[in-house]
Amino acid sequence: MRILIVDDEQMFVELFARTLASIGYEDIESANSGEEALARIEAQSTPFDCFLLDIRMDGMDGIELCKRIRALPQHHQTPIVMVTTMTEKSYVDSAFHAGANDYLTKPIDKIEITARMGMVEALLSERQHSGLLVEQLSDSEHSFGAKVRFEDPVALPDTPEVVPLGTLENYVLRLGNLRLFSSMAVGFHVTNAADIYARTGRLDFVDILANVAAAIGEALRGNDYFLAYAGSGDFCCVMPRLSSFDRGEAEVLLNDRLARIMESQAFPDCVSPRVRIGAPATSGLLSFNDPTHLLYKAIGAARKAADTAAAQPQEATGAA
């Protein structure tokens, strides 16, 4: 794995590189500023596999650098880990909004680094499995389609509003239950996802999920949120607890938007996806649950809402 460390404190770079080497990551380059990092990235014939960025640097800071790296086509999905002393929620939010996949707090700890690099490996593996969709579209449907399973939290094409599920999990883990108290998770369940998966080609299924993501994004417009696809037709988002989010209104809006998107596109043998939104899930201030529990609680609520709606087939679309 080729890694680029960016930090304006050279002694920290040396220490970090040595620690990484001790756990088997030896192909490491470094830059002491955002500007130098971009120049180095541009000069590479083989792209880096992972970036480890300090947030606070002279000149271009790590948040801006993260955005610039994400804007490069070859690095849309490359794992980026922010490495910083800044632990406030505003910094964590800024980093994930800029496209970071994880957030590591200084001082560095070998056990922690090992765990985070494990996450990076998992992201790279996920990207290999399904993430390079744009490139794979040129492959035959058969060769790629066979690899997409219904339950996979696949990367969706052209959906900047969607982060990988692993990144959303990292986000809530970095916040912890105490800071997560000011957030809520909302689940979205595509009630006929299995039917669509069975009827369509796998690439169409992924494209339809991307349409669902776009419609959810429109329904959440005006809110500060992180959205991820969790597989099996489930989406989950995290947003501030005090958001001006009206579940019923959002559900009508997104299904209406989705129907219009689907009308404008020709998917053979396909029914339009229908989405149910679950009741928002919140975390107790002193909860002992793993913070990621909140995400799955929200997805469970969306599935429950779908089951309830299915038991009342005459009911019009819209949350109770």
């Binding site: 220490l15 040595r18 080497a21 001790s22 756990i23 700890d109 070998k110 056990i111 090992t114």
Partner: peptide, 12 residues
């Protein structure tokens, strides 16, 4: 550094 792995490179 916190050290959870007894690798050969720890001395280094």
């Amino acid at each position: 550094l916190a050290d959870g792995h007894g690798t050969r490179q720890d001395g280094s």
